[in-house]
Design a protein around this nucleic acid. Structure first.
Lengths: 162, 162
DNA sequence: TCCTACTTGCGTATGATACGCAACAAGGAA
DNA sequence: TTCCTTGTTGCGTATCATACGCAAGTAGGA
């Protein structure tokens, strides 16, 4: 990520934090910088080690809490099923996934149109391609109903991609 | 899943197991049935509880081992990053993921063509749609090089979708 | 500069997952 | 059918990621 881009992200962080009444501590800044600058989708442990070099007293727990805080603020997202364990799938036919961000429900759906996706050139330069599928995230109808007359905020993010 | 479909899957299991010299124990049969019959992409714990009703002495550990065994045989796949912790992603722009099944490396790639995916009707009946992205799995070039002159077998599966 | 609510770090708890080992059973051989 | 051999199971326990409670600390508005 380029410097002006980083600056823009940091500005966004500042604004969002202020709006939410969240304090911008040294630790949080460093953790955010680390994840923004990384192209690796690092996990908490990795971020911890990186940040530790510049803030030796930071604790792993703070990294975890900060990451979920950033997540709640909509500043980062997670890969794969949320806060969840590995799940197994016996469906070997081509299919795609719908994942509820609230309860973790996963449903398959089929689409011959999507099965035949044409991937950009760039992808094949990363390595071999074993398969490709679409992952859709949203709030399942059951969870929608359960939500009282509550502001569609607090814990679900409403931004873009995983 | 329908009965004839289940039968077909069980037959496939039998064949594959025999070829691999893997024994078909009562436990394994029940665990496989359970996961094949479920539309929920259950995790190990869930499968364990279900199987336990019919095989009270089964252990959770056996469920784990069986699931990974089935996985190694190419009979089931996992959702999201493999055998891995949750990973964080700071990239909020529309993008897609390339995931190495060997080392867990994740790379983003962009494609305006893929960004504008048209999802089938059926999906919107499952719930709201917050976002959709493509997940590609394969063996990254680095892992390809590392692999000695080894049969492309053992631990990577080469079948279809997550 | 002062206050106060939000944060941090630490110790520890929890929860998922895996490993070693001895008892055990699948399934081919006799 | 009975007998072996080898892969499996269950158990106890280890490991690893992640989260929580609390007292000390600090950001940032008054």
């Amino acid at each position: 990520m380029s410097q002006p881009n980083l600056d823009r992200r940091l500005e966004h962080l500042t604004t969002t934090a202020k709006e939410a009444g969240v304090k911008l501590t040294h630790q949080r800044l460093e953790i955010f910088r680390e994840i923004v600058l990384s192209a690796e989708h690092p996990d908490a442990e990795t971020i911890f080690r990186a940040v530790q070099k510049r803030v030796p007293t930071v604790s792993l727990d703070t990294v975890y809490r900060t990451l979920w805080k950033l997540h709640d603020l909509g500043l980062v997202t997670t890969l794969g099923p949320q806060r969840d364990r590995v799940r197994f799938d016996a469906n070997l036919d081509p299919h795609h996934h719908y994942i509820c961000v609230q309860c973790g429900l996963v449903r398959d759906f089929e689409s011959s149109e999507l099965d035949g996706l044409r991937l950009p050139e760039a992808v094949s330069q990363l390595g071999t391609i074993m398969n490709a599928h679409v992952e859709v995230r949203g709030l399942c109808s059951r969870c929608q109903q359960r939500l009282p007359t509550q502001t569609p905020n607090s814990n679900q993010q409403s931004q873009s991609v995983p």
